[in-house]
Design a protein around this nucleic acid. Structure first.
Length: 636
RNA sequence: GCCCAUGUAGCUCAGGCGGUAGAGCGCUUCCUUGGUAAGGAAGAGGUUCACCGGUUCGAAUCCGGUCAUGGGCUCCA
């Protein structure tokens, strides 16, 4: 007799060895139909898995997050079979589940999206056949024999430590796989191929070029539809399209990867930086500036010449070699050294909006997200070792304050000592503990990336989450144990001796260009009033009112509002539509009534219109909203 | 940097199996002078289809190269 214990601690007994599916059926047929896999004593396995001893059992049903991953893994097998059926020479390699779907890397002739319908319809055939997934255990030798025509699988099998190897079969198709899988292919209700691209075997450029076919799958067709809809929405928000439509910036082949900011983009940029300067001044930072181009000798001293040279632009001036800065820190070191420092001055927080250039691979460039020239909202904080915790905590709080201003959530990651690194164990421990204690004190959950720190010190990365749930690394706080040493930075302590300060580099916006792009997508172009490139537009109802409109425009501008006027001989309806589509927060229509009564009629983006407001009643709430840099949609 | 795809008017895109280029939006002008999400008409715009070269009587179309963009790989703020 076998006793099965469920998560709620109820126990059910079985006379013979049941498999998980039998147990599910014993609860109810309907429940069993929604089961995807099982966890037997915390081990994830198929429903067909036989239970031969008393066990704890938890079912994974279609409602669990883990279930969709299993489904997608199974869908990858279905896609592999479909491809195999259509392209006899295709050699399968690996097919993992990724965020939002799955892919399979296949050594085959190159395919394009035009080939998708044919592959999809082959997949649908397999799905319709409701082929059961069956697990087969074989020895390593048997597996090698079975896949003898596929060098990739051979390599994978040889890399496996177990002598027992599991395969999964659906119908005629068999693939090497750890599992688990859904009971049968019929559970894949919504499936779609998304894109295709090249990828190298084992991500190694010297190895074979494979076709990577991406797809996604859901238990429900509606879920797929919803997902495709979100993708569409994301596409509409794409800052490469939206920002250009809104006349914020542009890209030109004459300077690939180096964005051009237009007047409206600069208005936003300046608003962003004005905010940054306000909060940094309040947090005890000073602002500095260092040159863009510095002598090679400095980069040799900092170590960049040795470690970062392939990313640096260089030039020769008066027969001396110079490099355009890829980072601000070496310049910051020179600033620190312009005078002697006392412990009384520490922590010294020196901010710098620094323009850096990095020669990124041409294929890596992407809109504002990945560029070759960008500004960092950098700061170097020099301090005594016992100030680490407090200072890191201060940066975390500042970051939280800034991201919250935009309604962006975030999560934290701590990266620890990598294999290749400088410094002693004791130094690393002190530094890492400092970061970790600050994180603990800060109180928000954080992840640890073991060995992912910089060679010169541990770091905290801040990943923000935008309005549609995508995450981006923006902020980073890096402790640097190398530069203070290389540049022999010192301060005089209480004991009147020279000491080495601890230094951190930190950014919060990160790359201002990238952050800008994230904001465009986060707000989908509908910026809060304080950021909006055009805050108000005046629409005279007819040509005769244009001069009066100009007068009002000047009045608003002189109070500090970013304002435009649309005097085209177009219908009011059309002007309103355009203003609305350009997300101008305050749309001011101007007719005879307004002129004679000296009032304003204001339409906001929610479509609401308020007529007959006095200038004072308009300006007061508007400037309050701007001064608070409010995220509220309601302005008036 | 590598692989694949793309590159036609300011924008979005159609066309083109080789015979010399189109639409909508935008822009200009005119009519309309309009009260809260597209009023109407006419016109200008491509040094001729990213750039360079080749094949050809003839190339936007075919071929090769370059550049840029997009999707990936890699890397990263």
């Amino acid at each position: 007799m076998i006793n099965i214990t469920f998560p709620d601690n109820t126990i059910k007994s079985f006379e013979e060895y049941p498999n998980a599916m039998d147990v599910a059926r014993s609860i109810s047929e309907g429940f069993a139909r929604n089961c995807v896999a099982a966890e037997i004593n915390d081990d994830l396995c198929d429903l067909s898995c036989e239970i031969k001893q008393d066990s704890r059992l938890k079912f994974i049903t279609v409602k669990d997050d883990a279930a969709v991953e299993i489904l997608r893994h199974s869908a990858a097998h279905v896609m592999a079979e479909a491809v195999q059926n259509l392209y006899k020479d295709a050699k399968l390699t690996i097919g993992p589940v990724v965020e939002d779907g799955f892919y399979y890397d296949i050594d085959m002739e190159s395919v394009s999206e035009d080939d998708f319908p044919k592959i999809e319809s082959e997949m649908k055939k397999i799905i319709k056949a409701k082929k059961p997934f069956t697990r087969i255990n074989v020895t390593k030798d048997q597996a090698l024999e079975l896949f003898k025509d596929n060098p990739y699988k051979i390599e994978l099998i040889q890399g496996l430590e177990d002598q027992q190897i599991s395969l999964y079969r659906q119908g005629e198709f068999t693939d090497l796989c750890r599992g688990p899988h859904i009971p049968h292919t019929g559970m894949i209700k919504g499936v779609k191929l998304m894109k295709v691209s090249g990828a190298y075997w084992r991500a190694d450029q010297t190895k074979a070029q494979l076709q990577r076919l991406y797809g996604t799958a859901f238990f429900d067709k509606k879920e797929l539809k919803k997902y495709l809809h979100i993708m569409e929405e994301a596409k509409k928000r794409d800052h490469r399209k939206l920002g250009i439509k809104l006349d914020l910036y542009s890209f030109h082949k004459e300077a690939a990867g180096m964005p051009f900011f237009h007047a409206k983009g600069m208005d936003m940029w300046n608003a962003l930086l004005a905010y940054w300067r306000d909060v940094h001044r309040a947090a005890g930072y000073v602002e500095t500036k260092t040159p863009v181009m510095l002598n090679r000798k400095l980069w040799e001293q900092s170590g960049h010449w040795e470690n970062y040279r392939e990313n640096m632009y260089t030039s020769v001036v008066d027969e001396e070699e110079y490099a355009i800065k890829p980072m601000n820190c070496p310049g910051g070191m020179l600033l620190y050294k312009t005078k002697s420092h006392s412990y009384r001055e520490l922590p010294l927080r020196a901010g710098e909006i620094g323009l850096v250039h990095r020669h990124e691979l041409s294929g890596a460039l992407s809109g504002l997200f990945r560029v070759r020239a960008f500004h960092q909202d950098d700061a170097h904080i020099f301090m005594t070792p016992d100030q680490i915790e407090e200072e890191i905590l201060g940066v975390l709080k500042l970051a939280n304050k800034i991201y919250s201003k935009f309604g962006l959530g975030f999560h934290l990651e701590l990266s620890t000592r990598p294999k290749k690194s400088i410094g002693t164990d004791a130094q690393w421990k002190e530094a890492t503990d400092g970061l970790e204690n600050a994180l603990k004190k800060y109180g928000q959950e954080y992840f640890i990336n073991e060995g992912d720190g910089a060679f010169y010190g541990p770091k905290i990365d801040i990943h923000i989450k935008d309005a549609i749930g995508r995450t981006w690394q923006c902020g980073t706080i890096q402790l640097d144990m190398a530069l203070p040493m290389r540049f022999d930075l010192t301060y005089t302590g209480k004991d009147n001796e020279k000491h080495r300060p601890v230094m951190i580099h930190r950014v919060i916006y990160g790359s201002i260009e990238r952050f800008f792009g994230i904001l465009v997508e986060h707000f989908a172009g509908k910026f809060p009033l304080w950021l909006a490139p055009v805050q108000a537009v005046i629409l005279p109802i007819n040509d005769a009112l244009a001069p009066y409109g100009e007068k009002i425009k000047q009045e608003l501008e002189s109070s500090g509002l970013r304002c435009e006027i649309d005097t085209r001989t177009e219908s009011l309806k059309k002007k309103i539509r355009e203003a609305q589509l350009n997300y101008i927060p305050l749309i001011i229509t101007m007719g005879e009534k307004e002129k004679t009564s000296s009032t304003l009629s204001v339409r906001t983006l929610d479509g609401k219109v308020r007529m007959g407001i006095s200038m004072e009643d308009f300006l007061k709430p508007v400037f309050k909203h701007i001064r608070l840099r409010s995220l509220e949609e309601k302005i008036l």
